[in-house]
Every structure is written in structure tokens, then in C-alpha cells.
Simulated assay, not measured.
Amino acid sequence: MEKCPYCSKDMLDGTLLGDRKALKWKPRDKTLLPGLWACGGLTVGSHVPTARAEARAWFCSYCRKVIIDVDNC
């Protein structure tokens, strides 16, 4: 069980899902471009064309934060 880095309470283990595209994280200062959804962004999780994009994630129900370890998706 992971501990929340914000409040130290137990976090719930789960999966962050996408649909037809890979999950992406986009920096706040970058804009969305047609055809280049998150230029300058970071692909998160695994994506196979025939499957749903997903990444392991932990959720803190107390402070409502989701934590993703991008190196271990």
C-alpha cells in the first residue's frame, strides 16, 4: 500500500485509463496543436493499438490526488 505524499494516509491502488489514444500529460505552458495532441508533452502508460491505454495510479480519497509513477507504468 502506498502512502500519500501530501497527507500520509493510505492510497488506493488502481489504473488510469484512456480510450483510443495513449494517455498524455501536457505542461501547462504548452498549447494543443491539431494532429500533435501534446507537442512537448509526456506519454504516460502503455498503449497497444488494439487495447485501451492505461497506467498504474494511486488515488488518495482524503486529499483527492492521483499519483502516477511514469517509470513503472
Rank of each mutant, 00 (worst) to 15 (best):
E2P: 00
E2A: 06
K3E: 08
K3V: 04
K3N: 08
C4P: 01
P5V: 02
P5N: 04
P5Y: 03
P5Q: 03
P5S: 02
P5L: 06
Y6Q: 07
Y6C: 05
C7G: 07
S8C: 07
S8M: 09
K9L: 01
K9A: 00
K9C: 00
L12Y: 03
D13G: 03
D13I: 06
G14E: 08
G14W: 08
G14D: 04
T15D: 07
L16W: 04
L16T: 04
L17Q: 07
L17T: 07
L17A: 02
L17S: 07
D19E: 11
D19F: 09
R20C: 00
K21S: 10
K21W: 09
A22C: 07
L23S: 02
K24R: 11
W25G: 04
W25I: 02
W25R: 01
W25K: 05
W25S: 05
K26N: 12
K26C: 11
K26F: 06
P27K: 13
P27S: 09
R28C: 11
D29G: 11
D29R: 14
T31R: 12
T31H: 12
T31D: 14
L32T: 15
L32C: 13
L33Q: 14
L33C: 09
L33G: 04
L33E: 12
P34N: 12
P34T: 12
P34A: 11
G35C: 13
G35A: 13
L36Y: 15
W37K: 14
W37I: 15
A38F: 06
A38C: 15
A38T: 08
A38H: 10
A38P: 09
G40T: 12
G41D: 11
G41Q: 09
L42S: 03
L42V: 11
L42Q: 14
L42M: 14
L42R: 13
T43S: 10
V44N: 00
G45R: 08
G45C: 02
G45D: 05
S46N: 12
S46I: 11
H47R: 11
V48L: 13
P49D: 15
T50E: 10
T50I: 10
T50R: 07
A51G: 09
A51V: 08
R52D: 03
A53K: 04
A53Q: 00
A53N: 01
A53D: 00
A53L: 02
A53V: 08
E54I: 02
E54G: 08
E54F: 05
A55F: 05
A55K: 06
A55R: 01
R56T: 10
R56P: 03
R56C: 05
R56L: 09
A57C: 10
A57S: 09
A57G: 07
F59C: 10
F59M: 11
C60I: 07
C60K: 02
C60F: 05
C60R: 01
S61T: 14
S61G: 10
S61D: 13
Y62F: 11
C63G: 06
C63I: 05
C63D: 11
C63T: 06
R64A: 01
K65L: 04
K65A: 03
V66R: 05
V66C: 09
I67W: 06
I67E: 00
I67K: 02
I68S: 03
I68T: 03
I68M: 01
I68K: 04
D69P: 00
D69Q: 06
D69T: 06
V70E: 06
V70Y: 06
V70W: 02
C73V: 10
C73G: 12
C73P: 00
